[in-house]
Nucleic acid binder design. Sequence first.
DNA 1: CTGTTAGCGCGTTCAC
DNA 2: GTGAACGCGCTAACAG
Lengths: 326, 326
Amino acid sequence: MPEPRRITSADVARRAGVSRATVSYVLNATPGQSISTATRDRVLDAAAGLGYAPSAAARTLRTGRSDVVLCLLPDWPIGNEVGNLLGNLSTALAREGLTFVAHPGSREDRPIAEIWKAITPAAVLSFTDFSDREREAMLAAGVALVVALLGRAGRAGLHGRELEVPQQLIGRRQTEHLLGTGHSRLGYAYPDDPRLKIFAEPRLAGCSGDPVVRTVPLDAALAAEAVAGWRADGVTGICAYNDEVALAVLAGARRLGIATPGGLAVIGVDDIPAARLAVPSLTTVTTDQRMLAAHLATTVVAAVSGRPAPVLATADLIRVVVRESA
Amino acid sequence: MPEPRRITSADVARRAGVSRATVSYVLNATPGQSISTATRDRVLDAAAGLGYAPSAAARTLRTGRSDVVLCLLPDWPIGNEVGNLLGNLSTALAREGLTFVAHPGSREDRPIAEIWKAITPAAVLSFTDFSDREREAMLAAGVALVVALLGRAGRAGLHGRELEVPQQLIGRRQTEHLLGTGHSRLGYAYPDDPRLKIFAEPRLAGCSGDPVVRTVPLDAALAAEAVAGWRADGVTGICAYNDEVALAVLAGARRLGIATPGGLAVIGVDDIPAARLAVPSLTTVTTDQRMLAAHLATTVVAAVSGRPAPVLATADLIRVVVRESA
DNA sequence: CTGTTAGCGCGTTCAC
DNA sequence: GTGAACGCGCTAACAG
């Protein structure tokens, strides 16, 4: 086999009878260049005819930045909703000519620096915050954007590119629903997994009505203990960290023979498939992942091109799905 | 700010008082080069002292291949288990010096070629099969490995690097359990989402006992219809495509007032958190994701370095988790 | 206006 | 152990 040599801009230039520079100008539509339509077309034709695709590596080497957006996934279990968000994000960024990739795996396995150095991304998104050193290193390396999807609460982002509002809003919506359906004494079912703290804290902080917090493991017997505790406190409505925790609360209540929602109302977060199949079916709160993804994509694009970040319209972002449990 | 110039191998060479070539040979431990220990150490010290990290882009440009392993995610909803697998895979590959990234999003959004051209990966993994054209294009571009996690059944892979066995094994284990607990007439609860077919087919094919197949949407009322049908057929044990479908079957049975497992035994797949919280708790089948990830990682490494693919030891890979529902 | 020349970015590798 | 070319695209400076 005659080693199928890569097609380079030189090939296109040769075929179009112009210089490589011209090819570059035409293909990148470089502003401030005046190239005749005839030449333009010849180049375009040649490129198309040869099936030319520029070498991403060369471009990256030259410009110091690829068109890849790197997302660092958290080390806590990612479920359906996150998967969904990533998919939407990928689609939205693709429309802008950016390639989205996600890197799973904890930062302990591999220093975060190795990851982005291997990719030379245009932007890095992360679900957890960066240390100042990391942030600086990336910026110094020319990474255009550094978004923490959930910055430390209250921290004025270096870029105003953080997105903690929705989390608090989730807690708010949960309590609003419960308070609105006649429950005045509330509990908060906190997740067992310490890695989830970064999400749980802002959600809890968004709750009004000062709920009684208890940790609820994903186990019916252990959940029952928590439920018993809440009962003793006079709590009648529970905001759960997410649907899984909510299902645990439901299972715990059942063990104790407590009727739901009569004896205890429960509201989750995420609307996982199991939520509607539970008995009683689970009332929960969902985020419009498509809208959120669109916003994130816009934020990334803005940052890459040096424009200010857009403001997230949070109005319809988070919705209560009313079912039987609350 | 004095524009923090990147540290290159030239800097290291200068500091160590050697040529750039030598630096390259030392840092890559290039075989067939005779470099004195003294020089070696000087280079190593200089590199460490300067905090030198080679430019991935330049390396990729030169060698035609990055050290990134690209995984193309399917467009069907990815859940916890897949997330888990990806995490383990990432960790395993990191140990081999490879950077793992995943690209979500359907192939309709963006031709698959654009993705890998943007990354120049050492290897590409995919959950679904590639067309022959795609496969060839990648191979021609120097991508070392092209694994379809689930090739078309029966297709003799170009590389023998396909992994369909576990899927069939899942079905096998489910039926074994049900047949072993006294159920002779079985049903298979097929997922509603057509995108899942690629997983569902091999799982179903692995089932013994020729089960009666019915599609079960994730909705209690609709699931009840399917359950009623099975009852009419004399079916007493259901293998579900996954835990969510199994939960739907459970919900359907409850609607009809059918006791589980007395009236109908159900076994799922995945062991999602909701499985143990269901009523009755769900008997299910799990895959050892860590073991699977290790095998995949080994396969990738073998392929990248041109060695033959290892054989997967399937013995303990798939396990039944016995709970109440079957 | 139109388009070209030339050198850069950085690590790798062949030939001496 | 070294010099020098190479992989490929970008872009400032420059000539018709």
